[in-house]
């Protein structure tokens, strides 16, 4: 057994070195395609997390002009209370809005504003969540109202955008993964061709089929593994240095999970590529 491991290791390394340019091409293609897969996965997870965070809060916010008079404020308050579309409302004064504002954005973006610049707002829960946009259009043009926002609508729009982005990423990744598999298949095929004399002698003296095959499979496996390790590094770097908006922040478990998927897929396509090459080109 020990003899065999040494033999397989030596053969694999020498195969990889002999075909180093092809190996590099295969590894890089795996790396790029899996980086896309990893980013798409991270995007999906952070979007899902953000949606949950937002949906547990207020569904419609009626932002008052900072200059709105007390009369305008009371009128809006009464109308909201009377509207059958609105279940209940909470009034946020300037201090409370400012606190929320500070919490939701990084300091670099908040330090130019003070509580006095903040609008007051009504945080309302529609009776039926889907009616949020009716509330929005009803109150939008009331005197003293600056704007009405319905995060659910925004979430829906953003989710839509993210979904399209994700489909584009995954489609690109799919094409690249396919070409990575073909590249790996081709490097293994070249390795088999380069070693055809050895293979024929091995068959002649009675080496078992798996003994002959395993160095080639290991070669594809290692190419997939190297590519996916590069991709995992890229995904981790992206996550660490370019975190999306605070509300998208993911924990390390999600990152680990994503990297596990990336490495798993890389190893899989490496093995599949070499397995196909062996079936088609290695006559044992």
């Amino acid at each position: 057994m020990r003899v065999y491991f040494r033999y397989a290791f030596r053969e694999t390394i020498s195969n990889l070195w002999r075909n180093r340019m092809m190996t590099l091409a295969a590894v890089l293609t795996v790396a790029v395609s899996l980086s896309l897969v990893g980013s798409a996965l991270l995007l999906k997870q952070s979007a899902a997390q953000a949606s949950v965070a937002w949906q547990t809060g207020t569904r419609v916010t009626v932002w008052m002009n900072p200059t709105a008079s007390q009369g305008e404020l009371d009128a809006v308050r009464t109308q909201l209370a009377d509207s059958p579309l609105v279940h209940r409302c909470v009034f946020f004064d300037q201090a409370r809005d400012y606190k929320e504002f500070l919490a939701s954005l990084p300091p670099s973006e908040t330090n130019v504003l003070t509580a006095a610049d903040m609008p007051t707002s009504f945080r309302c829960e529609p009776t039926i969540p889907a009616d949020a946009f009716i509330v929005e259009s009803t109150f939008k043009n009331q005197p003293g109202v600056y704007d009405v926002t319905a995060p659910e609508q925004q979430i829906r729009q953003m989710n839509h955008a993210i979904r399209i982005l994700q489909i584009v990423f995954l489609a690109l990744a799919g094409v690249l993964l396919l070409s990575a598999t073909v590249l790996i298949l081709n490097t293994i095929r070249m390795a088999i061709f380069a070693r055809r004399r050895e293979v024929s002698v091995m068959k002649l003296v009675g080496a078992t089929n798996w003994f002959i095959r395993i160095p080639f499979i290991t070669e594809g496996f290692i190419q997939g593994l190297l590519g996916s390790l590069v991709a995992a590094l890229a995904v981790t770097a992206l996550h660490t240095w370019y975190p999306l908006h605070n509300e998208f922040a993911l924990n390390n478990v999600a990152l680990l999970g994503t990297n596990a998927v990336v490495i798993g897929v890389g190893v899989l396509i490496g093995s599949v590529g070499s397995a196909i090459a062996i079936r088609r080109f290695l006559d044992v």
Binding site: V201, K203, L204, V205, G206, T208, N209
Partner: peptide, 19 residues
């Protein structure tokens, strides 16, 4: 089959050595 071949040695006209 490989185990069968371990009991059979083979020599050819063209030697078939690894160069």
């Amino acid at each position: 089959v490989p185990y069968l071949r371990r009991n059979i040695g083979c020599v050819f006209q063209d030697f078939r050595l690894l160069p």
